[in-house]
């Protein structure tokens, strides 16, 4: 189910500005890969290149290669709409659909992809809400508005919604940065559970969080991938001086 993602010489430009520069990176399946770095270092831009979200930004140009398993996602063989069912995304601010109920937020995409119907759809709702550790809190009010949930619950609903299309990779863009510490804790526990089945890439500006949840960490600076390795190694024994300066809090 989980898939490996590989980038080769990945470059993203906005007009003349290079936001991501020639990044080679291999993201292993069934693990959590954290991307850290100071503001503006290209970490979110990199993440959004992995499910072609830059397609919607007219000035953005993506060069190089990104592969999901052995399929090139910028090649002709991959439809971006199909790609995004395989590579899901959770955003910085919880963004449930306000016109839909909790249940409808989950069923919206799988229903239209023809993944499930009738009783199967009900099972799917329960399964992904349990996976997102939200079921017990919402099982009695599935038809209530998604906006009636707290911020942390909304974010877990967004994770459940992403899981409902059965992705292979889950991209998370600072998923806990708009949440309080308790809600953050729940999201981190959740990430830990989900990595058994998915490839997870998480962008975070919180280094403690990267240390807690990830197996591998990539340090980005000025669009370059500066250092990439096992999280424990990178934090205790950084090889690059800029990595060391950043993780010890001397800049960023």
């Amino acid at each position: 189910m989980a898939e490996r993602m590989t980038t080769r010489q990945l470059t993203v430009r906005f007009g003349n500005a290079e936001a991501v520069r020639r990044v080679d990176m291999e993201i292993p399946p069934r693990s959590v890969t954290a991307i850290i770095g100071p503001s503006g270092c290209g970490k979110t831009t990199f993440l959004r290149a992995l499910n072609r979200m830059h397609d919607f930004t007219p000035v953005a140009r993506v060069e190089g290669s990104v592969r999901l398993g052995d399929r090139e996602i910028y090649g002709n063989g991959m439809n971006p709409v199909e790609l995004r069912t395989r590579v899901g995304m959770v955003f910085q601010r919880p963004n449930p659909f306000p016109t839909m109920s909790i249940r409808q937020n989950v069923t919206y995409a799988p229903k239209r992809h023809g993944l499930a119907r009738g009783p199967e759809l009900e099972e799917l709702v329960e399964r992904v809400l349990r996976q997102a550790a939200l079921w017990d809190e919402v099982k009695d009010r599935l038809d209530h508005s998604a906006t009636s949930l707290s911020g942390g619950q909304q974010q877990r609903l967004c994770i459940a919604r992403a899981l409902a299309v059965e992705p292979q990779v889950l991209l998370m863009d600072e998923p806990a940065s708009a949440l309080d510490p308790t809600a953050t804790q729940k999201i981190e526990d959740l990430i830990y559970d989900l990595k058994q089945e998915y490839t997870i890439v998480i962008v975070t500006h919180n280094m403690q969080q990267a240390g807690r949840v990830s197996d591998h960490t990539a340090f980005f600076y000025m669009g370059h991938l500066i250092e990439y390795g096992a999280t424990d190694d990178l934090f205790t024994n950084p090889r690059n001086e800029r990595t060391e300066a950043y993780i010890t809090g001397r800049f960023g």
Binding site: M89, F97, R112
Partner: peptide, 25 residues
């Protein structure tokens, strides 16, 4: 924009995103 992106990220094309997410909101 994040409402549209949420829908795109679920593998929904532009037409359903407009009709089911943006227009109702």
């Amino acid at each position: 924009r994040d409402q549209r992106e949420a829908s795109f990220a679920l593998g929904m094309a532009e037409a359903p995103t407009t009709l089911r997410v943006v227009l109702p909101a």
